[in-house]
Amino acid sequence: MTASQRGSVSPEAGAEETPRRPLGAARPRHGEKVVKGFLALCAALSVGVTIAIVVSLLTPTIGFFREVSVVEFLTGTQWSPGFARGEFGVLPIVVGTLTVVVIALLVAIPIGLLSAIYLAEYAPRRVRAVIKPALEVLEGIPTVAIGLFGLFLLRPLAEQIFPFMNWRGDFSIGVAGVAVGLLIVPLIASVSEDAMRSVPGGLREGAYALGANKMRVSLRVVFPAAISGIVAAVVLAMSRAIGETMIVLLVAGAGNPNLSFDLARGAQTMTAYIGGTATGDIATGTTVYNTIFAVGSLLFLMTLVVNLFAIRLVRRFREVYE
C-alpha cells in the first residue's frame, strides 16, 4: 500500500468511526420531572376541589327535594322558606339574579369595550401605562366598598335622576345591577385590550394601505380579529356578576318574596340569599337549611351552562395567527 493510499481515508470510514450522540439529554433531569409532577398535582387538585364542591352540594340537595318537589321549586313564584308555611318557589331570586346580571352587562360591556379600544388603538404609551394599572386597581377594590358606594351614593342619585319611578325604601335591584356593572368594567376592559393588542400588526398595516382610517381599522379589522378574546372577557364578567354577593346584599336587600320586575324596589338574588341565610342560626338538616344547598346547586348549574356555551362560542369564532 502506497503512502498516498495509507493517508487517504474515505468519508464513509470517517463517518463510521465518529461516535454518535443521542438526541436526548446527556443525564436525567430530575428537576424537570419534579416540576411536571407538581403541575400535574395542581391540575388534579383543581379537579378534586370541583368534585368535592359538587359532592358537598349534592347530598343536602337530594334531602331537600325529598321534602319539596322539583316542579314547585323551579316554577313557584313565591320564595319564603323561613316562614311557618314556607314557599319554595325559586323563580323570584332567579329573576333577581338575572336582572342584576343583565343590567351589569348593559353597563359594563359598552364602557369596557370602548375603554379597551382606546387603550389598544388610540392611547399613547404613557397614557396606557397610567390607565391600565388604574383599571387593575379598580378591579381589586373590595366588593363591600362598592356596595356601600352603591347604597349611599348611587341609590339617592338614581332617585334624583329618575323621579318618575316608584322608589320604595332604601334598596333597589336596578341600582345593584349598575354597581355590579361598575365592578366588572375593569375585567372586560383589561382582557379585551389584551386580545386586541395581540392582533398582528400586519392586519392594521394592510387596512391602512387600503386607505382606512383608525376608526375603521379599530372597528372592522381589530375588533373582529379579537372577537374570541372579547367573548371570553364578557363570559368571565358574566360569571363574576352571577356570583357577586356583597354588593347585591347591601344594595338590593332582601326584597319581597313575590316575583317582581320593578327595578326601583329591593329584591333578593341567589347569592344574597345564601350569604344572608348561612349564618349558623338555622338547625342543620332542616328543610330551610337544605334550601341553601339547593339554591347553590342551581347556581352552580347555571354557571356551568354559561361556561359550556361560552367555550363553544369561543371555539367557533377563534382566530389563530402565525
Results as ranks from 00 to 15, higher is better:
L41N: 04
A129P: 06
P156E: 07
V222S: 03
I109N: 00
R220Y: 03
S4G: 11
I131W: 09
A225Y: 05
G206M: 13
V47H: 05
D262F: 02
V95C: 01
V185G: 06
I111T: 12
T277D: 03
L210W: 04
V175D: 07
L138M: 15
W79Q: 01
F171L: 02
P200W: 10
V90Q: 00
R128C: 11
F73K: 10
I93T: 04
R20A: 14
R240W: 00
Y321W: 12
K132H: 11
R155V: 09
A108W: 02
E121S: 11
G48R: 11
V175P: 04
E244Q: 09
M270N: 08
A134G: 08
L304D: 02
V102R: 01
M238Q: 00
G243T: 12
L39V: 14
A207G: 10
G266I: 06
L105F: 00
S80C: 06
E12M: 10
S4Y: 03
V288A: 12
A225L: 12
R155M: 14
I184K: 09
E72F: 05
I230D: 09
L298S: 06
G147D: 06
A158M: 15
V221K: 08
L182Y: 07
G229W: 12
L113I: 15
I117Y: 06
L301R: 06
A237H: 04
A232D: 13
P186G: 08
E244C: 08
L39I: 14
G147M: 11
A104L: 12
G202Y: 08
P224N: 07
A3W: 03
E17G: 02
R312D: 04
P60I: 09
A15E: 15
Y289I: 01
D262E: 15
F83L: 14
L91I: 09
T18K: 14
N290I: 01
A3M: 13
I131R: 08
G89Q: 02
F293K: 03
M1W: 09
F64T: 03
L203Q: 11
V47K: 08
F152Q: 09
L98M: 15
